[in-house]
Nucleic acid binder design. Sequence first.
DNA 1: TGTCTATATTGACATACATCTATTCCGGCT
DNA 2: AGCCGGAATAGATGTATGTCAATATAGACA
Lengths: 113, 113
Amino acid sequence: MELLQILECSPPLAREPLDAEQAAGVARVFKALGDPVRLRILSIVASREGGEVCVCDITGAFELSQPTISHHLKVLKDVGLITSERRASWVYYRLVPETLGELSALLTAPATV
Amino acid sequence: MELLQILECSPPLAREPLDAEQAAGVARVFKALGDPVRLRILSIVASREGGEVCVCDITGAFELSQPTISHHLKVLKDVGLITSERRASWVYYRLVPETLGELSALLTAPATV
DNA sequence: TGTCTATATTGACATACATCTATTCCGGCT
DNA sequence: AGCCGGAATAGATGTATGTCAATATAGACA
């Protein structure tokens, strides 16, 4: 089952308990967000005017090796938070806003009455 | 610095890149959410009428040892997602909706124009 | 005081993960 | 074809993490 589909059919945490399968799917995405480097990469991609970021731009923002950045990009891509497209020698990444939106909805807190 | 404060002053991912300190703080919370058992525990606590869950209720919902559940509760508590209160022999956990709300806001996707 | 129940802590262990170096893959260029 | 630069993959390594059994702690009650 696709991860985005799991997110779509998972109720907000505050509405009813997740079943084991939903929890496993959702946890994969949160785990991807549970690393400071990946969070910064995602925020760079998500906040970019035009929506596209070249890998070289990301690599330049960190004091980490190129393979490490590549690894983190793969993790984010595998859970459906970003997509990639190769053009000539460069690979461009962009956000998948639907995934982020589903996550946000999942975390919507109950009305503080 | 308190984790909730870091969440409060961190811009939505899609607005501007997180700095290293913000990312480290936010990542701690997402890492706590990055485990299926903890997600299910949190959803049990968050969706409970009355807001309180006894540890024994949680333990009964999993085929895991009591120390393991206790460990996961501590992780969720350490990042400010839940709080605990002891009354007589029992310990009750409840959601901290502010933390969940801050996280949700952080993930708010950019307007899909 | 002693015992019983509920929860937390400790210590051990196997697995997962972040990072690096070395290498490979892919396009463009000469 | 051969080379070069950008990016991905493979393999290695130290550290973090999820789990358990054993033990400790806290409170109720006899």
